[in-house]
């Protein structure tokens, strides 16, 4: 039994292909991250999953219901879905509890049950003291928590979040992840999109999306281990000279970024020793570590996560809003 299963999923906005045959599966109770830059297709996948867009081509099955669905099946699926959008979806002119009540009624909750669920969610998310404040008066972090409380009010089995930590400070991010972990522990499947490596690293499994295609999928540590070897990162007085030495003498062309050089090698410690011999005074800082998700992203897509924005022809039009 899988919570989400996609096979050969394609989506087209007019003439532009945003998803080019996506295959992936998400297990129940798992926290699954879709990592990719703007235009990678992750927001399109989110929209298909949240039933905001109809499936055009390929197969997408969510909680056992094949999409596109209509009528009773669609209603049943939507009841089991909790959706957190990247942009706010709260009514700023209503209070926190009024927003929750409105949401609850849309999902068929009423009376004592509605009141009790609102109270529970408000307490759980530390919002009880702000229940009667207008949403417009809340900070960004608090609003995000109201969004989450709202999405979870009806007790969904699958929580879908689009860039949930956008606009959150580091502390609020930690709290958000505690919340997501707690939901997953209670059996809720969590699927989120992100362009942040450290966020994808916290997921149980992640998929790397690039230009509408799946570049990699697996547990973060598995993906990193698959790269093999170690990562050597260094800062040099004369980076060009060190880079040339690495490429010509040692046969490992380095990648340069942020004024640093980086190579991946099965025996990085030997390279380090050789470099220190060759440039006894020229290396100001050097570190050897395990590959990060960034290294996985580079290895699988051939470009850096942050730089991929500009290279991506889809970026400008998909990220509208």
């Amino acid at each position: 039994m899988v919570a989400v299963s996609a096979a050969g999923l394609r989506y087209r906005y007019g003439g532009r292909l945003a998803l080019e045959g996506l295959d992936l599966e998400v297990a129940p109770g798992e926290v699954f991250a879709l990592l990719g830059p703007n235009g990678s297709g992750k927001t399109t996948f989110f929209r298909l999953l949240s039933t905001l867009l109809p499936v055009q081509e390929g197969r997408l099955q969510v909680l056992g219901i094949a999409l596109p669905a209509s009528g009773a099946a669609l209603g049943r699926l939507r009841c089991a879905l909790g959706v957190v959008f990247q942009s706010p979806s709260l009514d700023r002119q209503l209070t926190v509890v009024e927003n929750l009540r409105c949401q609850g009624r849309l999902y068929g909750l009423r009376g004592a049950e509605l009141r009790q669920r609102c109270r529970e969610r408000l307490e759980r998310f530390g919002l009880a003291g702000r229940a009667h404040d207008l949403v417009a008066t809340l900070s960004g972090g608090l609003r995000r928590r109201v969004e989450l409380a709202k999405a979870l009010l009806h007790g969904p089995r699958l929580l879908v979040l689009d860039e949930p930590s956008t606009g959150l400070d580091p502390r609020a991010r930690l709290v958000l992840w505690e919340d997501l972990r707690q939901q997953a522990a209670a059996g809720v499947t969590v699927v989120l999109t992100t362009h942040l490596l450290e966020e994808a690293d916290k997921a149980d499994r992640l998929a790397i999306l690039h230009l509408g295609k799946l570049a990699a999928v697996g547990r973060p540590e598995e993906l990193k281990a698959e790269l093999g070897g170690q990562i050597l990162t260094l800062r040099a007085e004369q980076p060009q000279a060190v880079a040339a030495y690495l490429e010509k003498e040692l046969g490992v062309p380095p990648a340069a970024f942020n004024g640093m050089l980086r190579v991946q090698h099965p025996q990085a410690h030997r390279l380090a020793a050789q470099l220190c011999e060759a440039f006894p005074q020229g290396i100001s800082w050097l570190a050897i570590g395990q590959p990060s998700l960034e290294d996985v992203f580079i290895a699988r897509t051939g470009c850096r996560l942050t730089a991929a924005d500009e290279a991506d022809p889809l970026a400008a039009s998909e990220d509208h809003g």
Partner: peptide, 11 residues
């Protein structure tokens, strides 16, 4: 303001 998107995914 985004309120509508929440309504669009409601049952």
């Amino acid at each position: 303001e985004g309120f509508l998107q929440g309504v669009l995914v409601a049952p």
